[in-house]
Design a protein around this nucleic acid. Sequence first.
DNA 1: ATTAGCACTCTTAGCACTCGAGTGCTAATC
DNA 2: GATTAGCACTCGAGTGCTAAGAGTGCTAAT
Lengths: 344, 344
Amino acid sequence: MAMDNRKLRILRAIIDEYILSAVPVGSKSLSRNTDFALSSATIRNEMAGLEGLGYLEQPHTSAGRVPSDKAYRLYVDSMLQRAKLTERELAVLQRYCGVRVSSVEEVMRETARSLSEITNYTAIVLMPEMSESRLRHLQLVPLAQGSALAVAVTDAGVAREAVIRIPPDMSVEELEQISRMITQRYYNRTISTVAERLVVEIGEILRERKSFLQSLTGTIDRSAASGTHLVELSGATNILHYPEYRDVQKAKSFLAAVENKDTLYDLLKQASGMEFTITIGSENKAETLRDCSVVTASYKLGDLALGTFGIIGPTRMQYGKVLTILEYMRASLGEVLTGLQDKE
Amino acid sequence: MAMDNRKLRILRAIIDEYILSAVPVGSKSLSRNTDFALSSATIRNEMAGLEGLGYLEQPHTSAGRVPSDKAYRLYVDSMLQRAKLTERELAVLQRYCGVRVSSVEEVMRETARSLSEITNYTAIVLMPEMSESRLRHLQLVPLAQGSALAVAVTDAGVAREAVIRIPPDMSVEELEQISRMITQRYYNRTISTVAERLVVEIGEILRERKSFLQSLTGTIDRSAASGTHLVELSGATNILHYPEYRDVQKAKSFLAAVENKDTLYDLLKQASGMEFTITIGSENKAETLRDCSVVTASYKLGDLALGTFGIIGPTRMQYGKVLTILEYMRASLGEVLTGLQDKE
DNA sequence: ATTAGCACTCTTAGCACTCGAGTGCTAATC
DNA sequence: GATTAGCACTCGAGTGCTAAGAGTGCTAAT
């Protein structure tokens, strides 16, 4: 049994229908509601064929058919067409572009919020990777006896901070001097380079401060590596709108999965760099997302900030619409990020 | 009909029972499972009395009784006793105290995580108020042509950043000089003072930079005021464990309420400064939390960081246990925050 | 190749029924 | 006078049955 043109058209009709209704679609309703000039019996035959090929599944005998992950894959690969956006959707996007923000974190938060609001799915945004961005300034600010706050600023316009311990005999002037020295020496180097070379190079100059520098390096390393607050999540509870999650148990496991930022980080990390990715159901690495689809987009700003964002929803997702929205968002994000600097 | 001692004992037994089981408790089971030497009939009479007084409610005739908010209020006001912690609970607390963190944000995250893990309710943590903490350092770092990052460090050990626009003719040296001037002049002043006086005072010195300073002030103001990322939330989905939220509709409205950080911010803000607060069901201002209880505690560190944290759960909450945990946490939080500076 | 027709399957909604836990009331008991 | 045993009554949850509806596969006719 091979795939032919008519089978494709039927499959597509089934998918379109199922995406809207979430109800298994049967041969009769299909022949009634579409303009194939075919009887239900013919469609039944074709459906049986499609099931044999693995594109359709039957929840139980005498129920309609449901598209398999394989079907969705075919769908997005070869029959997807961009959807027009509605008034409402455009309005949210426009509002998003006009929003006043003053830090990269805020941009991420707004992006996630808008995405989830438009799509009604769950939105995730991955912050630009710290370790690949370049140092602009490092400042050590004394806090109390024996402790200081280290603040690193990068070209992506983000600051990271960490409280560090300092030798009790270290003076304010010395801290200032070290800050200046590091800033000067490592200006425009990537953070990972800084972490790598700091001790070796400056340790030679300031022998007696070597252990302090070591601890500083450790902090930088850890802070650059920790992906914890690099993931922004919004609209997790949107999933509860969809009938496939009417079962509280399922909803719970989805929400638990999504509350764990490590899973999300891996997800986005993997997709970073790809213009768009679509991962369907069982294609997901994470066990817990096996009946979700993930669509992501990456943005790039000059050779500067680079991040990824996307949405998570049921496999029965409006792929066309989502892609259009992500595309739009991708373009706007650059604008908003640049805008950071143009609006006050 | 007045309240007497026996009524109190019965009411208490009902509350204790209901907190554990979430099932309306009836006269028979109560006389069976407790050591009142009373028949179910007597208890029934007393229960009718308690209902008349507004302490009990009946979901429908021929169901057991459920404590009213008023009953819980009485319970926490006059019959509450601290609960012992279990092994598991202590273990989590211990792990919490040992955790290595290097920024206030991380402390908040860990606190929220641990709280929700121990209690199985939803935890919220409010970050120390920015505008009341004192400036330690202000740094303007040039990013690109016409823009810079302003980073303010406070005595609470947190840094806040914002991208600002700068006049194109402003040199690196001038930025540096302004940073130094502001830091020097406003060292140890509260952020709100800085925002208030900056333009007036320094504007006089740097007349030609007045508009720049104005925009900087605006940024500081806004950044200090924005409560957005000052609230840390954890374990929102824990609520799904409880039978009162088995209805997806209810769960959805709870989660929506809790996803809105403004609501939470108001909640915690109001409780800040109070050692402990307990707000029961309808006592909540927020419409959406009318069948939840909120328990909060505030911490203070010297006259330094001051924040609030708490948990949200069903009105049928283990108040005794929660209070004990919050008390413990309150003590540990100081330790952890100080520890920020002692561990590397 | 298509389709009409038919027998069969499976889910869902509705209905009557039972069972258990709970209630209020009254009369007997301590 | 307080307590309790007893009784009739109510309500919700669970059970079993039936009928309706949607869908299927197969076969024979077009």
